[in-house]
Amino acid sequence: MLGHDAPVDTPPRDQVVDRLTVLLTRMLRPDAPITERTQLMDELGLSSSLGLELLLALEDELEIQIDVEELDEDRMATLGDLADYITANSTPR
């Protein structure tokens, strides 16, 4: 039985990767398939304003809140990097 201090569930990394892949494919319609190693800015040309749109859509889909205070370009170089950041810096809402 879970107590009041049970850890809250954050989405597993695989689920974050999957949803990011779907959302980016829908938003940017890239020529090549998107993978964890796809570079968001250097290959897809993701702008910061599209990045914000992406995070907002992900928050809605997974019903989470992402803490963006520590986010910077180095932490979202690839899709895998961004998935790592989100997995470590989000809370259910």
């Binding site: 890239p30 020529d31 090549a32 570079q39 250097d42 290959e43 897809l44 040309g45």
Partner: peptide
Amino acid sequence: DRAARLGTGALRDRF
């Protein structure tokens, strides 16, 4: 090199 990595011709040219 950075230009060449971009995924479409329009992105490469703009860069």
